[in-house]
Simulated scan of single mutants.
Amino acid sequence: MLLPTETVYGLGADAANPAAVAAIFEAKGRPRFNPLIAHVHDAETAARIAVFDDRARALAAAFWPGPLTIVAPIRDVAAVCDLARAGLDTVAIRVPGHPLSRAVLAAFGGPVVAPSANRSGRPSPTTFADAFAETGDKAAAAALDGGPCAVGLESTVVAVLDGPVRLLRPGAVTRAQLEAVVGPLAPADGDAKRSPGRLALHYAPDAPVRIEATAPREGEAFLAFGPWPTGEGVFNLSPSGDLAEAAAKLFAYLRAADRTRPVGIAVASIPDEGLGEAINDRLRRAAGFVG
């Protein structure tokens, strides 16, 4: 099913059902070593599936429902099948903030994997139309339109295991917000494999992406940021330089620029602070670099 969340649209399936999870991988063309996030209705359900220490509980209390995924040791291996966890002894889990997704999860009663409803490697869909165009034919009759995604970037992913809390994927919950709760974050290091969205080439449109551009070259579409003249092929992520606005528009504008069939897509420099860290992570991967 197509499931709206506050981050991006997801392609949902029963996390406990290996056949259903396999169908998700098939629909997305997703590498099976890439784990999926299990979505649940509330923190109590999450704690029955994963082993939460005091730090994980503090993060859940601070940011759930919302765009934070916590990677923790698996407690109930039957609730999230081995395929969904990519064979790992951990589970990536979150409580989404979108009221429609939470209503579906409450009615279902168990965890639902819901990776972004795009073909693997493509920009994530943040509107129902883009989600349906990407994988709607795989969602049978269950396709829920929850409107444009308010956040527009995938969730932040942190690992709460032995040792310090590690930032595996930057997202809408910023580093500073996390560190205010659990102290300094460690780099992903060996735990990077426990998070989705870590492929070197990811979130990529068909046209090649050139980042930190000062201006477009001939034939390129341009994703501007801040004051920039309007014109054909120009998509301004935020004329006022607002990072939250830029994050919400990023994937939709990458898709819109790609539909003009440019020779490439140039993207203006984005400040690497706050939400900018997550935006730049996605852009580096769209351009084919590991962020």
Rank of each mutant, 00 (worst) to 15 (best):
R75G: 07
I265A: 03
T126M: 05
A43H: 07
D53F: 04
G226P: 11
E154F: 11
A186I: 00
A172H: 13
A252V: 02
E179V: 06
D76M: 12
G276Y: 13
L250Y: 05
A172K: 01
G66P: 02
P123V: 08
V40L: 10
C149A: 11
D76T: 10
D281S: 02
E232Y: 07
G10T: 10
D54Q: 13
G241Q: 09
P208R: 05
I93V: 14
T174C: 02
N236R: 10
A133K: 09
G10S: 14
E26D: 15
V51L: 14
A72T: 12
G276W: 07
N236D: 13
P227W: 05
D189S: 14
A192P: 00
L36H: 12
V91R: 08
A86N: 09
E273I: 15
A107M: 04
R102M: 03
L243M: 04
P35H: 03
G136N: 09
G110I: 06
E26A: 15
R94F: 00
L185Q: 06
T230R: 13
A287S: 13
A61M: 06
K28W: 09
P125V: 09
T214V: 14
S101H: 01
R166Y: 07
R102W: 04
T90N: 06
L178V: 12
P208I: 04
P67E: 06
S101V: 08
P164H: 07
A244T: 09
A16Y: 08
A192T: 14
Y253F: 15
P96I: 05
T156V: 02
P35T: 12
D14L: 02
L36Y: 11
G233A: 02
A278K: 03
V77G: 14
I74C: 15
K28V: 06
S240F: 01
Y9L: 05
H98A: 03
F222G: 05
A78C: 10
D14E: 14
E44A: 15
T260L: 15
A221Y: 06
R255L: 10
P271N: 06
R285D: 03
V209S: 03
A204Y: 02
A266I: 04
V151C: 00
A23P: 01
V51I: 14
P115V: 10
F235A: 06
K28A: 07
A143P: 08
V267C: 11
R175D: 07
V8M: 00
A141M: 08
G171E: 01
A244V: 10
T45M: 15
D89I: 01
D54S: 15
A224M: 06
L11W: 09
P35F: 12
S155K: 07
L167A: 10
V71Y: 11
S269F: 09
G97D: 04
R285Q: 12
R169P: 04
A58N: 08
R261H: 14
L283V: 05
A142M: 13
G12H: 06
A114D: 10
A159F: 02
L168W: 08
R194V: 12
V157K: 05
